[in-house]
Design a protein around this nucleic acid. Sequence first.
DNA 1: TGAAATGTTGGGGCG
DNA 2: ACGCCCCAACATTTC
Length: 468
Amino acid sequence: MSLIIQWFRQDLRISDNPALFAAVNKGEVLPIYILDDENAGKYKIGSASRIWLHHSLEKLNESLEHKLRIFAGDAKEVIAQLLQKYDISAVYWNRCYEPWRIKRDQAIKEMLKRLGVEAHSFNGSLLIEPWELLKEDNSFYKVFTPFYKKAYLEGFLTCNPISKPHKLMISNQRIECLDLDSLKLLPTSTWSEKVISHWQIGEEAAYKKLEYFLQNGINDYKEGRDFPDKQNVSYLSPHLHFGELSPRQIVYNIHNKVSDRNLEHFLREITWREFSYYLLYHFPELPDKNFQSKFDYFPWRENTTLLNAWQKGETGYPIVDAGMRELWQTGYMHNRVRMIVGSFLVKNLLLPWHHGRDWFWDCLLDADLANNSASWQWVAGSGADAAPYFRIFNPILQGKKFDPEGSYISRFIPELNKLPKQFLFNIWEAPTSVLKKAGITLGQNYPNPIIDLKYSREKALQAYNSIK
DNA sequence: TGAAATGTTGGGGCG
DNA sequence: ACGCCCCAACATTTC
């Protein structure tokens, strides 16, 4: 009996997996995963995401009765060899939208066609596939709100997920493949263990997290989501990235359980993810090239010292540093803080957004080419429907506004714990006696501010003016 | 999904 | 009593 390949990619789940559902109806399934760093090239998975991937594959393998076959290398080559060695009649997968993957998958589809092997691809990752929603004049949306409205009216934001396959018939055939450990996804440092200790990984955990969010966080989502120390955000991003959970499952469940302004706001955030994929598809250079070409002439500067300080969370601005340390310690950063540290890098430090992109790509468990590219361009002002350049966050005010008790700051910068709240956001203005009492010596155990806010703001506005 | 600069208003102190 | 000034507090404009 010939085998059906179910090729898992960014859909590491059993439920609401259209390719898998179709494949199991067809016959005996051979589930495979291919770590394809070759085709990914410079877009290959970052360090933090690899840790997640390792554990997620482990979980998926459990759900598949420990019969997930793992490979590494050029996916086309891997599949070609499987076809040569074994009797395979079809390959099933859910589509991905990264430009390098689209190109690769097209080539694979052609190869399969040539060899007379069926190839079936499905939509398992998006509510709106990028070609499904265009403006009247057939061009693509470049502004979020009209995109959102249209998607809403056309019914893209309500849907029914499909169920788990009733019965999995997974092949027992002996297949030459790798074991998970040989992919070497886990770094040898203790960093990876620490990062991952904050998370539960896999389909089951993702679903539990969704349920928890729907019972708790979402009830005050509209207001609470801006406060990094509150638990009002979903924390679903890494699960979504690896497809342990689908946007369809999320949307289906929120429609069932809530219906108010909090729902609307969360739905908008889910749709921002769709919009990012949409932009990436219609503008494949998004990860590297300014969406607005006038930014090609923007006078960024290069400064390794400033970049290092930002990366390590040693800028001297507590809300920025807390965010960067959250990222380093947990592989995640609260969205409000992502905007603050982004604005700081690009506007106050005047460093190119690409540096932020690269650091996030390596450190975030939820690093996602579409979201990361679109969001950094949004912050920089070079993107579609981006933040206007003059919108420059003041880290002191943002800290006071969104972490009024300083609880987020002291969670990640415990050395500031003894400092009275009134000086927590502008430490350098605290009297020496206060600093001494709090055990802080600026420049020793907490840095002096690396730039002057007022001056850097003026410089940023000048730079913006220069490309108008 | 900002912040700073500038403009306006209105109450209170005071000559 | 009245006008003048000061300055919060709030609103509008500008970057």
